Simulated scan of single mutants.
Amino acid sequence: MKETILKVKNLAVSYTTYRGKVRSVRGLSFKLKKGETLALVGESGCGKSASVKPIMGEHEANQVIESGEITFTYDGPQGEETVDLLKIDDEKMQQEIKGKQIAMIFQDPMTSLDPTMKIGKQIAEAIKTSSSDLSSEELTDKVRELIDMVGIGHIDTVMNQYPHQLSGGMRQRIVIAIALSSDPSLLICDEPTTALDVTIQARILNLIKKLQRERGLSVIFITHNLGVVANVADRVNVMYAGKIIETGSSEDIFFDPRHPYTWGLLSAVPDVHDNEEKLPTINGTIPDLTKEIVGDAFAPRNPYALEIDFKEEPPMFSVNEHHEAATWLLDERAPKIEMPELLQQRIMRMRGEVYD
C-alpha cells in the first residue's frame, strides 16, 4: 500500500461578498497517495480551485476557512514531517513547502511567466530558491536539463528567448519545468491545457503523465472536462456545488458512473463515433451558494430527481470498496434508473477499445 501524503478532512471554505457569504467548499474530504494522480472534475464554479488554494497556502482577503484539516507529509530538513497546512505559520510555508514541496501549474502560462525576463533566467531564478549553493556553471546545466526534460529542443535558443516568442504549448512546458525545478512531491495542475488546442493539449497531458511516472510525483489535476483526464488520472473526484458527489478509480467513473451529474459530464464530452447532431448538455446552472441548499444540490437540474432529492441531502452510497456516489438512486428503495442510452453505447464501445 502506498503511503498517504495528503489528507483533506471536512474542508469548508467561504468568501464574503457584497451579496453575502459564498460557501464555495462545503465539507470536502479526500486522500492522495504517493505517486498517485487524482482528478477534481466539475463545471466552473463547483469549488475545484477554491478547494486547492488552501493546500498551496493561497489566502485571499475575503476568504474564510470555516473548518477542516489539510495534513501533508513531506521530507523536510529534519526528515519526514507531517503538518496541518491550515495551521502552519507563513514563514515555514514559504521556506519549506510552497513552490518547493508543493508546486502548481496554472491555466494560462503567461500569468506565470515574467514577460520582461528571458526564459533561461526565469528557470534559473526558480532553481535558486531551493538550490542557492550552485555555481554559475552548475546552474546553467540545471536549466538546460529542465528544458530538455520537458521535451523542448534548441535549448540554447529557447533560453535566450522571451515568453512571447514561444508558442502556447512551449510556454506551458516552461511553466512545468519551473514547477519541477525544486523537485516537489506534489504537483497541482489547475486547468493546465484549457487554453491549448487539442493536439498540444494531448502532448502536455502525456508529458505530465510521463514526468509523474518517472519522478514518483503525486498530482492533483483540476479540470471541467472529464475527457481530459481519461488516460491521466488514477482516481477521480466529481465535484458539484462545493462537494464531492462521486468518487472512484478512473475505471469506476468512466465505465460504471452512478451519479446523474457524472452521466451529464461524460455525455457532454465530444465523441467522433456519435451520430447526434447536437452535443448533450446539462440543463440549468449551478445553485446560488449564498443561499442555504435544501436536499440534493443537483436536484433542480436532475431529470431523474426523486421527491426525496428536494428534501434531504443524499449520503455517500458505496458501489464497491473504492467507488461511492451521493445519489438517492443508489438507495435500495429507489426505482431502477438506467443511464442515458447514448452514454451506455459509448461505454460499451470504450470497453471494446480497451480490451481489444
Rank of each mutant, 00 (worst) to 15 (best):
L139I: 05
L146I: 05
V83H: 00
E96Q: 12
I147M: 02
G79N: 03
H154F: 04
D156I: 00
S51A: 06
E66F: 07
G153I: 00
K48Y: 02
K98T: 11
I127L: 07
I119R: 04
T116E: 09
G79Y: 06
S131Q: 09
S131R: 05
G45F: 10
D75M: 12
Q101L: 08
G153A: 06
H59Y: 15
A103S: 15
I88G: 07
D108P: 08
D89R: 14
I97T: 05
E96L: 13
K92L: 14
V143P: 07
E60D: 08
M93G: 14
D148C: 08
G120P: 11
E138K: 14
T129E: 07
D108R: 01
C46A: 02
L134K: 09
I55C: 02
S51Q: 00
E60Y: 13
S132M: 06
L86E: 07
Q78G: 12
E145W: 01
T116P: 10
M93F: 09
V25Q: 00
S49E: 05
K142T: 06
I70G: 02
K118Q: 15
R26C: 11
I88C: 11
M110W: 13
I155T: 15
L38R: 03
K53F: 15
T82M: 10
K98V: 10
A61G: 13
L28R: 04
I102W: 15
M56L: 10
D75V: 07
F72M: 00
T82G: 11
I119H: 02
L134E: 06
V41W: 02
G68Q: 03
V25I: 00
M159I: 08
P77K: 13
G99H: 10
E138Q: 15
E81L: 11
A103P: 11
E138A: 13
L146M: 09
D133M: 08
I88Y: 12
L38N: 01
M110E: 12
S49F: 02
V25W: 03
Q101P: 09
P77I: 14
M93L: 10
G27S: 03
S135A: 06
P54D: 07
H154E: 08
E58I: 09
K100E: 03
E91P: 08
T157S: 13
K100Q: 06
S112T: 03
P54Y: 05
Q63V: 14
L28C: 05
N160I: 01
T116L: 15
G76M: 02
T129Y: 00
V52H: 09
S135T: 03
I155F: 08
Q122W: 03
K100A: 07
I55S: 04
G35L: 02
C46T: 00
V158T: 13
K92M: 08
D148E: 15
E69H: 15
V52D: 13
L38C: 00
D108T: 03
R144Q: 15
L85S: 08
D114T: 10
K121I: 09
V150L: 02
L32V: 03
F30D: 01
H59V: 15
E60T: 15
E81W: 08
Q78I: 09
E137K: 06
L146K: 01
M149E: 12
M159K: 06
E58F: 09
I55G: 04
I97S: 05
D89V: 14
E125A: 14
D114Y: 05
I70K: 04
I147V: 10
T116V: 12
T157L: 11
Q63A: 14
T157I: 08
A103E: 07
Q101I: 04
K100W: 06
K98P: 12
L86Q: 01
S136V: 11
F30I: 00
S51L: 02
